[in-house]
Design a protein around this nucleic acid. Structure first.
Length: 802
RNA sequence: GCCGAUGUGGCGGAAUUGGCAGACGCACUAGACUCAAAAUCUAGCGGGAAACCAUGUGGGUUCGAGUCCCACCAUCGGUACCA
């Protein structure tokens, strides 16, 4: 009988679906395990071969955990709001809901064909009003706690299409669709105060098991720095200061000029004092017209104008120094103003050279600072620095800040690179923001009992003029009454970003059909936190950080029981095209999973994706290798021809069986799936070599292989007439004693080079080993002088000879 | 530029974490079966006649280095003047 994967896979998938084999149980007395993968965006292209890499990995772990007796929650859903569906809708005049449903149906079918042990009864969809009701509810809580606010922020604005664009729609500074330049346009937007959680988002990483590189990337993104805010008095005023932020207050004596961002408010405030206002305004306009991209592009050549009519006083030297405007200073970081220390900062040095500003060395140890900036200054002695002279840098920092605080001209300050989260999108296909604007009461949230605020039906998905949301055209929907005073009011027309639905979806899985809360207290208590979350590195600084932020907020208001949403986070490598490049339509190297499943079956597909290479690293696709995996499963199938009776392991295989259980068990926990599969291959090579496998060995073998290749193993398991399926079985156990070899072979080296091997009993004492070794290599030792002998127990015997 | 990975046969990759480099798979070569091919099976497969030489390059530590240290080089990913 040949291996008919089509029939087998269909049979088991239907059985699992009918019986709900993998549904999580509502028995909260059992020990639980919650495994999570990033729910997909259901794109029109269907499943990518990259998706199953992550899904198969956690599927393997989930299946093993079930056999170990855990109540496992391994859910799936769809992150279905988003740009591609909306753009498709604009182009083809089809409602995004329709196209989204088609895509979800297609994805679901593809996922089911791969035999994942998802709990389909808990499937969620972010575009479902019963789901986004709670996204809106969370937003209202954020607003009520002062964490959501309106601010004027620039958006990417396409000068051709006259619409706002998402960052991913801006390619090299031009609009992805029409190629027109993209500029920044000011717009009032909803913002979330993630910055309020910056410190906690760093600190709490200590208590969770994330890959080190993920923690590091998050920390760098949050970008904490310690320094001081320093006041510089402005000349010509009685009591006006310019405040700067610096991490290096010790270099204050070297501050020879100041620079403010073009958007800095002092320009408008002191307009009448500025004697070259026209020049200044021209520079401001020029900066405004530049996109972020252009501002970064021109990074090498610094530009700027001096602000004439106002100067500042260096508080330590008492000297009058000029103030410049330049776009290399960002209004979004620190105070939007800096003190420039050109001797010790690359950017300041470049700027000083270009505009002929004085450069004064304050930390010794570098080359001539007139020729080259000396920026590596975390150690060294202070010079030209008054009372700081002679101090080491780190002492100077402390001494100087103490002095500034004492004199009231500065104070310690911690800053973060992290910025607040722009939460508005001028788009149709997203969750409506449940806020109304009342002339009398300002911004007022909807009453919670009126949620969900359903996305209105529209026919026209084109964005509004001037970068407005398509909803801005829905006058009937917009006009409403104020929940507070009952007067007339207008709805918010922006929608939420795609990140909203994905920031809390793992909570909904715990209790997906609850109408009274995002999930019940009991479900949250039982299932929290997610035990293991696997996903892509590309989500480290956005999705992963956003959802940690929301979770912490929900914790603060008593909704969830844990500080952190995910106990453990790992990530998978990308699957590349066979040419080693990223898979993409334009490169013509895309592999469609359906084709692979048709030709080789789901089990082969799964095994191949796990065998392809180390799980956390990128790996190129190879059609030849996949055939190798198919051949492996075919050989597994044909093992039935070698099957003999036997209810315990036979002596020839006993050691191998115990070792294999140990190896596969630990490999799965460490995500070393490729070496597990190598173990399986070695095992069947042995069975074929001795042309025999007994029932006990076959049973264990199938149980071990089951998480990787669930269909074929269940089918073969039926031959054993155990009266149950593998899914109802338990994970095999091994006996440590039986994994140990009593006789081992160790290498004998001369000066670290292998000359021979000897067999010795395990844990033999050194003198016995020495004797065996000397007998073995006596000839080779002739004419040589032994300097030293090293024996590492059970490992190696090295003789140093001359 | 900065941050993070990675570099081992013709290819994907193993290596118990400092102890026999190349497990397992692919490709390839020869043989068996076949009228023939495919499939399957069997054997071989880093280089070198050998001593030996080989884990990106050059140094170092060690009885012993793919693994640790220093300095480079290359590729990939992230990020963009963060004071």
């Amino acid at each position: 009988m040949s291996y008919n994967f089509k029939e087998i896979e269909k049979k088991w998938q239907q059985k699992w679906e009918k019986e709900g084999t993998f549904n999580a149980k509502d028995d909260y007395t059992m020990k639980k395990w919650y495994g999570l993968i990033e729910f997909p965006y259901p794109s029109g292209q269907g499943l990518h071969v990259g998706h199953p890499r992550s899904y198969t990995a956690l599927d393997i772990i989930a299946r093993k955990k079930r056999l170990e007796g855990y109540n496992v929650l391994y859910p799936i859903g769809f992150d279905a709001f988003g740009l591609p569906a909306e753009n498709y809708a604009i182009k083809n005049k089809i409602h995004p809901r329709i196209i989204t449903k088609q895509n979800v149906d297609h994805f679901r079918e593809q996922l089911k064909a791969l035999g994942f042990s998802f709990d389909w009864s808990r499937e969620i969809n972010t575009t479902d009003p019963d789901y986004y009701k709670w996204s809106q509810w969370i937003f209202i809580q954020l607003f009520k706690h002062g964490l959501a606010y309106k601010a004027t922020m620039p958006i990417n604005y396409c000068t051709g299409c006259k619409v706002g664009l998402a960052n991913e729609e801006v390619v090299n500074g031009v609009c992805e669709r029409c190629g027109s330049p993209v500029v920044q346009k000011e717009k009032s937007q909803w913002m979330l105060k993630i910055t309020e959680y910056a410190q906690r988002l760093i600190d709490d990483l200590d208590d969770i098991d994330f890959l080190e590189k993920i923690k590091l990337q998050q920390k760098n993104w949050i970008g904490r720095s310690e320094g001081a805010e320093v006041k510089f008095k402005l000349t010509g005023f009685d009591n006006e200061d310019l405040i700067v932020y610096t991490t290096r207050p010790d270099t204050l004596f070297g501050a020879t000029y100041m620079v403010i961002a073009p958007e800095h408010p002092m320009i408008e405030k002191f307009e009448n004092k500025i004697t070259n206002l026209e020049e200044v305004k021209a520079y401001q306009n020029q900066a405004k017209l530049k996109s972020d991209f252009e501002r970064a592009e021109l990074s090498k050549d610094k530009t700027g104008v001096e602000l004439k009519g106002i100067t500042a006083i260096n508080p330590l030297t008492g000297k009058e120094i000029p103030i410049w405007i330049s776009d290399y200073v960002l209004i979004t970081y620190g105070t939007g103003a800096i003190m420039a220390v050109p001797a010790h900062d690359d950017r300041d040095w470049e700027f000083a050279k270009k505009f002929n500003l004085p450069i004064i060395e304050v930390v010794s140890g570098g080359e001539n600072v007139q020729e080259k900036p000396h920026t590596d200054v975390y150690s060294g002695k202070m010079v030209n620095s008054g009372f700081l002279n002679g101090l080491e840098v780190k002492d100077a920092i402390k001494t100087c800040i103490d002095y500034l605080e004492e004199k009231g001209i500065g104070k310690r300050k911690v800053n973060f690179k992290l910025r607040d989260w722009v939460f508005s999108r001028q788009r149709y296909w997203g969750e409506p923001i449940p806020m109304v604007y009342c002339e009398k009461c300002g911004w007022v949230p909807l009453d919670e009992k009126d949620l969900p605020l359903v996305l209105p039906e529209v026919k026209d998905f084109e964005p509004g003029e001037n970068g407005e949301s398509p909803l801005a055209k829905q006058t009937e929907w917009i006009n409403t009454t104020c929940p507070h005073c009952g007067g007339s009011a207008k709805r918010e027309t922006d929608t939420m970003p795609q990140w909203a639905g994905s920031s809390w979806y793992f909570l909904r899985y715990m209790d997906p059909h609850n109408n009274n809360a995002l999930a019940s207290k009991e479900a949250l208590e039982y299932w929290s936190p997610v035990d293991w979350y696997n996903g892509g590195m590309e989500h480290t600084t956005l999705h992963l950080l956003y959802s940690r932020f929301w979770h912490k907020f929900l914790y603060d208001i008593g909704v969830v029981p844990t500080k952190e949403p995910y106990q453990k986070r790992t990530s998978h490598g990308m699957i590349l095209g066979s040419n080693g490049e990223k898979m993409s339509k334009s490169r013509g190297n895309v592999v469609n999973p359906d084709d692979i499943v048709n030709e080789f079956g789901a089990d082969t597909f799964r095994v191949y994706e796990m065998f392809i290479g180390p799980f956390d690293q990128a790996a190129p696709w190879s059609m030849d290798s996949i055939r190798g995996c198919y051949k492996f499963l075919e050989r597994v199938w044909n093992l039935q021809e070698l099957l003999v009776d036997g209810d315990s392991y036979s002596p020839e295989f006993e050691k191998m069986m115990h070792k294999a259980i140990k190896k596969v068990s630990s490999d799965i926990e460490e995500m070393k799936f490729n070496t597990s599969i190598a173990t399986f291959m070695t095992m069947i090579n042995e069975f074929y070599r001795l042309k025999r496998i007994n029932k006990a060995e076959f049973k264990t073998f199938l149980e071990l292989l089951n998480p990787f290749a669930p269909h074929i193993t269940e089918e073969l398991y039926e031959l054993l007439n155990t009266g149950h399926t593998i899914s109802d079985s338990t994970w095999p156990k091994y006996d440590e004693e039986k994994t140990i070899d009593n006789e081992i072979e160790i290498p004998v080296q001369f000066n670290g080079k292998v000359k021979a091997t000897v067999k010795i009993p395990l844990d033999a004492d050194e003198s016995a080993v020495k004797e065996t070794v000397h007998k073995e290599v006596a000839k080779l030792l002739e004419g040589k002088t032994i300097v030293k002998e090293i024996y590492v127990k059970n490992k190696i015997y090295n003789i140093v000879v001359k």
